[in-house]
């Protein structure tokens, strides 16, 4: 295989590393591009215990049955996308093994796994003004009483379709977006965040 340094993230052209090194601002909101990660789209019947068991055996994580929630910790999580659709995440490079494990576990069921790792960029926004920034483009109510840590939602942000996941305190959100939109979305968010003491991390 080719050296991994030849690999580029979706926003490599924006020179975020250099800008992060300049280290300005950040009291309001800190933006960064998360690195490569594994995302496997799985489909199956949530009501079928065999499906849930297969997912658990292949991933080690319980399938979140509740809408708009995330199960698991660290790199390995399962995000609810719809009534018969989830994302299994993993560390970079796990995709082939995960797909294989899932397909193996799904034998005999109508359930599928499909690698979509390379299709999404993941933007990270954290800091006390994060909700203010997101409110400029998300029609969802992100009040902490309504949308908390461990919740996710597919929705629109600006004019892009995204998956929004509150991953932690701060608050800290991750935004999954198709790579082709990521340049637009980053610049859009950056312009908004400019009013909220923006810092950039690599």
């Amino acid at each position: 295989m080719v050296e991994t340094y030849q690999r580029r993230t979706a926003l490599a052209h924006l020179g975020l590393v250099g800008r992060a090194a300049a280290g300005k601002g950040g009291a309001g909101v800190v933006m960064s591009e998360a690195g490569h990660r594994t995302i496997i789209n799985i489909r199956g019947n949530a009501q079928d215990p065999a499906f849930a068991a297969a997912v658990k055996s292949a991933t080690g994580v319980d399938l979140p049955a509740k809408a708009n929630t995330v199960a698991g910790t660290g790199a390995r999580q399962i995000l609810w996308l719809g009534p018969n659709e989830w994302w299994v995440t993993g560390a970079d490079g796990e995709a082939d093994a995960l797909v294989e494990a899932l397909r193996g576990a799904f034998t005999g069921q109508h359930a599928t796994a499909c690698d979509v790792s390379e299709s999404r960029a993941v933007l990270s926004l954290k800091g006390p003004k994060t909700r203010e920034v997101l409110a400029r483009g998300v029609s969802l109510d992100l009040h902490p009483k309504v949308f908390g840590i461990g919740q996710c939602a597919q929705t629109g942000l600006s004019r892009c379709n995204v998956l929004l996941h509150q991953v932690g305190e701060g608050p800290h959100f991750e935004i999954y977006v198709l790579k082709s939109f990521s340049d637009y979305l980053w610049r859009w968010l950056e312009q908004i965040a400019g009013d909220f003491d923006l810092g950039i991390e690599a």
């Binding site: 809408a67 719809g82 029609s139 969802l140 629109g156």
Partner: peptide, 11 residues
């Protein structure tokens, strides 16, 4: 019926 109430522009 799956995601809960959302604004019309999502549909």
């Amino acid at each position: 019926p799956y995601c809960g109430p959302r604004d019309e522009h999502e549909f």
